[in-house]
Nucleic acid binder design. Sequence first.
DNA 1: GATGAATGAGTGTTCATTCAT
DNA 2: TATGAATGAACACTCATTCAT
Lengths: 174, 174, 174, 174
Amino acid sequence: MRILDAALMLIADHGVGGTSLQMIADAVGVTKAAVYHQFKTKEEIVIALTERELGRLDDALEAAEAEKSRTKAREVLLTRVIDMAIERRRAAATLQSDPVIVRLLAEHEPFQAYLTRLYGVLLGDASDENRVSAAMLSGAIGTAVVHPLVADVDDDELRTQLLILTRRLLALPE
Amino acid sequence: MRILDAALMLIADHGVGGTSLQMIADAVGVTKAAVYHQFKTKEEIVIALTERELGRLDDALEAAEAEKSRTKAREVLLTRVIDMAIERRRAAATLQSDPVIVRLLAEHEPFQAYLTRLYGVLLGDASDENRVSAAMLSGAIGTAVVHPLVADVDDDELRTQLLILTRRLLALPE
Amino acid sequence: MRILDAALMLIADHGVGGTSLQMIADAVGVTKAAVYHQFKTKEEIVIALTERELGRLDDALEAAEAEKSRTKAREVLLTRVIDMAIERRRAAATLQSDPVIVRLLAEHEPFQAYLTRLYGVLLGDASDENRVSAAMLSGAIGTAVVHPLVADVDDDELRTQLLILTRRLLALPE
Amino acid sequence: MRILDAALMLIADHGVGGTSLQMIADAVGVTKAAVYHQFKTKEEIVIALTERELGRLDDALEAAEAEKSRTKAREVLLTRVIDMAIERRRAAATLQSDPVIVRLLAEHEPFQAYLTRLYGVLLGDASDENRVSAAMLSGAIGTAVVHPLVADVDDDELRTQLLILTRRLLALPE
DNA sequence: GATGAATGAGTGTTCATTCAT
DNA sequence: TATGAATGAACACTCATTCAT
């Protein structure tokens, strides 16, 4: 959907609060009213957007949940998360840290459920160490891919390093 | 300054774009015009705010730069960063990821210089591995302290774990 | 357009700087936002307004430019200018002397071109005498029609006198 | 008074409505409050300003009123008006046409009286022709000196031409 | 004399949203 | 499906003005 594409890019650049429906409509090349024809409110756009991005993990999440070994499950999921973050470098950080989206993730029921599943796989057991390392990972990957320090690291190298460092952080065998 | 305190909390909750001057003025208990008497624009508030928070690292940064050993320097700085992030759990993430502040950090000259110093200590050498691990750390700490997964981990335990995991990520001796 | 009508009257009374969009919207009986739907900025209103008033000279200007005799051309144009000034006594002066409009006339390209045509006809040749008399005329007519001294001179008499005096000023045969 | 000087120049450029006390204070290099120490309101500044400029005609007005011959009286006054307009080219037009000042001249008692004296001399008798020609003159001189058409006519030549044209308009012997 | 801090009302402009067509 | 016109509320910011110091 072109509206969601445009909205995602704009939100990545200006945040949800800094992105107006006018900007989205202009980017798509239609009128505001046309946007409203497809989404009843601005929030609905943000939800659809987040749903779509989160949905990209569906396959990996299901595969991970099907794994018997927790360690293997984590690996499957993390690899996919890293791939996704690299594919969509610009959007990755914002979606995880924009206050509006954060609030949405915390309050919108379906997201809650999805995140619970996600954390379930990510966590292994719920020891403090695991909880903290999972929390670190959550932000680290999204933030890392857009960080100025890695602006000129190419995608493949970045992917390799992220995998290594992630395993190290989780004390997985390298 | 009470204005900056109020602004920081509001921005942590709603992002820069979601925080209006009216909200700030109301939180302080004065009129919008009174806020404008002290800051000529909204951006000026955000700059002052960011400057103040960043300034809390001054001591540690100077101490780190005075260290001969790069490894020791990194430790000094990281310890302080972790302490700060825990002290100001709510604000930590937003300040690092709000698009408005990110843009500010990238475009406002004095911030550029400060960040260069910061990364200089954090990086050690500029190998790809180091660059990626430093980038991960930048976001990881800020994000971790506000992550729902660690909401009920107490400050001391969180601090201990963050130190351990950070050393692990950077392959420092534990 | 009702917005332009209202704006013209208000600007005639209070000047551009003293006329707010709220005043214009109130006069038309719509909201400010409705005004903004048709004009993107206040300046755009002022431009449209000035364009429209200036446009009333189009016919006379074209007719004048088609004349072979310079003297005849001036007469055609001046007669129309006087008629217009009398028709729209209130607005005439402000449009020629409000600093905002003056700046607009000087900086907005299309106005520049139009005024050059206008002065081309008005000037005849570019002797100093002609330049000064044309400059005097420009303001004199607009100012005269709203001057308190002539407040109780009726339109027809005023028109007759303006024609006589204008010819005298330009040393045209009466 | 430096405040009045600054205010006059600013008003000439932006009109009364477009000139704020902040602008005036900035131009003088003091605070708004300091301006308020000398003038209780903005209107008071405009009044003082207009009074001061109008006052420059005092000598000529008195001399003119002392003349027995009406014709001579007009000449004395007009010569002075022309001199003043040329001396203060920029301010001349605004003071005569800014709607705020126009309203002030019409409503502020002392100005009414002064203008009545001025018109008394200017008019000669109150025939329609005289009234219209005096009205034209009022605006013509002020407007002419700032008109783009005469921007590169030097002061002396402009003065000469204005005198000639003025006499012609009033049917005085050249 | 001059300042800094404050205010309430206003500025131009944009917001998300609605609705008749 | 899409539009254009409209709205009320909010936005960042400036206004003229006051007052304690």
